[in-house]
Structures are given as C-alpha cells and as structure tokens.
Computed example of a mutant assay.
Amino acid sequence: MPTIRKTITLNDTQDAWIKRQIARGAFTNDSEYIRDLVRRDQEGQAKLAGLKQAIAEGLESGVSEKSLDAIWGEAEARAETAGA
C-alpha cells in the first residue's frame, strides 16, 4: 500500500506525550503512534455506525407486545448462545 507523507502540528504537551509512548516501547516512532490512533478511530466510528443502525432499526420496528421480562429473557438466551 503506498504511503502519503503528512505534516502535522502538535503542541509541546502532545509531542511529549507521543515521545513517552515511544520511550515506554508501545510504538517505534511518531508515525506508528498516529497510524494507531487513526485505526482505533476508524474502528470506533464503524462501531458507532453499527449502533446507530441498530437504534434506527429498533425505532422503526415499533412498540413490542412482549413484556420486559420476556425481552430480557430472550436477550440472555442470545448472549448464552453467542458465548458458547
């Protein structure tokens, strides 16, 4: 994958933070740290989009005729199945 060089401006506190992350061995250089932040942001945005979609589907589905206990029981059963 081709790379693109970017120039960013940080304040002293932000630069010191990145340097500490590199010094503790979490990253090998500034670019690796920034790429990690971008990847985590992309993952977070994807999860957020999924949650928003689920909320929209829930709202569109209308009011359920089931009791709260029945809904909770179904959710627990799905969680057990998913964990198995």
Rank of each mutant, 00 (worst) to 15 (best):
K6T: 11
Q53D: 03
S64C: 13
D15T: 02
L68E: 14
D15M: 07
Q42E: 15
Q21A: 02
T81H: 13
W17N: 03
A16L: 08
A46M: 15
G50E: 14
T9F: 01
E76C: 12
D41E: 10
Q21G: 02
E57C: 02
I55A: 08
A79D: 09
T9P: 00
I71N: 00
P2W: 10
K47D: 07
L48Q: 01
A79F: 12
S67M: 13
A56H: 08
D69L: 03
P2G: 13
N11L: 06
D15L: 08
T9W: 02
S64G: 13
A84T: 00
E65W: 09
A49D: 09
A46T: 14
I34A: 12
I71F: 00
G62K: 11
E57N: 05
Y33K: 01
E76H: 09
V63I: 04
I55M: 03
S64A: 12
A79K: 08
I71A: 00
R5D: 12
E57W: 01
E80C: 11
N29K: 02
M1F: 03
I8F: 05
R5I: 14
Q45C: 02
K6H: 04
A23K: 06
Q45F: 04
Q21E: 08
Q42K: 11
E32W: 07
D30F: 05
L37S: 09
A75S: 14
D12S: 15
N29Y: 03
L68M: 09
Y33R: 01
G62V: 13
K19W: 07
R40C: 13
K66N: 10
I34T: 04
L48M: 04
A54R: 03
A56Y: 04
A82R: 14
A70Q: 07
G58Y: 00
G73E: 06
A75F: 15
A16Q: 08
N11D: 13
I4D: 08
G83Y: 11
I4P: 03
Q53E: 06
S64T: 15
D69V: 01
A16M: 08
A46S: 15
E43T: 07
S64I: 13
E43L: 09
M1E: 05
P2M: 14
K6P: 03
G83A: 15
A46N: 14
R20V: 01
T28I: 09
A23Y: 07
A70E: 08
